[in-house]
């Protein structure tokens, strides 16, 4: 169980645009063991999707560019793999569920074809076998198998998201990256889809990175949590540690007055001020303009990662002893 699956070190991804360089991801580290679920939480624009695309090596280029870092997956650095090898991993060992199910499926192919395609690519099955397996996958996510000849527009949003999940899980991946898999769905369906993902993940012992704005979802599904702010992971810890002993002022802000596992947590909207402009990040600690505890030094000194033990890490000068709590 404690075998390391994914180890990201110092990943930096920028978008080079006409209006400046968007510093989307700035030197983040992520570790994930087999079967574990990590919640990646942060405000909009924090760089969550970019991180995920980076792992898949699908950052659109141009304008995006992976500037540095290592992504070690099953002992191999994905960033050094030739494109052909990387293709064998995508959809097979690492799958991704994208943010918006409405637009994630190809409108001119049947859902069966789209499912069968990924199976055929990675499992070398014949057409008929792939279709058979596609039908099974559909049933597994709760869609009647005979609907495999339907097109996406004949499905509801929730059903489309199920299809997307089926595609992602079809080849039994080691790692599933789910980018806000439920935000586009309405509330009742959100719960269903989330339950489904939880069940399937346990069934297949798949590790997962769950990207979300919703701390409630995190509490329900994740083993570990990483909080992202302006392209950095400002705090990461086990679920219990993070919910019971949040350390970073930003994390504290996220919880507002409800740092409690049992109570319902609303969507993130708690901290005064706005996300900094990613083309022009503040000096020092990027959170200092919004931080209630910021001192002058925060404007100058970039915080390092402080290990508080038990895998609880935080990036804040308070824990380097440079600022009073």
């Amino acid at each position: 169980m404690n075998e390391k699956l994914l180890d990201i070190k110092n990943l930096t991804i920028h978008y080079i645009t006409d209006d400046g360089v968007v510093k989307a991801v700035n030197g983040i580290d992520i570790e994930l063991n087999k079967g574990e679920t990590l919640g990646l939480v942060g405000e909009t624009g924090a760089g969550k999707t970019t991180t995920a695309l980076g792992i898949m090596r699908l950052v659109p280029n141009p304008p995006g560019k992976i500037l540095s870092g290592e992504i070690t997956f099953e002992g191999k650095d994905l960033l050094k793999l030739p494109e052909g090898e990387m293709r064998k991993i995508r959809g097979n060992k690492i799958s991704m569920i994208f943010q918006d199910p409405m637009t994630s499926l190809n409108p001119v192919m049947t859902v069966g074809e789209q499912l069968a395609e990924v199976i055929q690519i990675h499992e070398g099955l014949s057409n008929e076998e792939a279709i058979e397996k596609a039908k099974k996958m559909l049933e597994m996510v709760g869609i009647p198998g005979e609907r495999h000849t339907d097109y996406p527009h004949q499905f509801s949003g929730g059903m489309k998201q199920r299809v997307v999940i089926a595609i992602a899980l079809a080849c039994n991946p080691q790692l599933l990256i789910a980018d806000e898999p439920t935000t586009a769905l309405d509330v009742t369906i959100q719960a269903q889809v989330l339950d489904l993902m939880k069940r399937l993940k346990e069934e297949f012992n798949t590790a997962m990175i769950l990207i979300t704005h919703d701390l409630g979802v995190v509490a329900e599904v994740c083993d570990k949590v990483a909080i992202m702010y302006a392209g950095e992971i400002v705090e990461s810890a086990s679920l219990e540690d993070l919910f019971e002993k949040p350390k970073h002022p930003y994390t504290l802000g996220l919880f507002g007055s409800i740092p409690n596992l049992e109570e319902e947590v609303e969507r993130l909207n708690p901290i005064k001020g706005l996300m900094p402009d990613p083309t022009n990040l503040p000096s020092g600690c990027p959170f200092h303009p919004r931080c209630p505890k910021a001192k002058d030094i925060c404007k100058i000194q970039v915080p390092k990662t402080t290990d508080l033990g038990n895998g609880h890490k935080v990036r804040c000068l308070i824990y380097e002893g440079l600022v009073e709590a």
Partner: peptide
């Protein structure tokens, strides 16, 4: 080409 489903196809490992 910039639609989401093209990204999905790439994420499936399609050439």
């Amino acid at each position: 080409i910039r639609q989401d489903y093209i990204r999905t196809a790439r994420a499936k490992g399609v050439e």
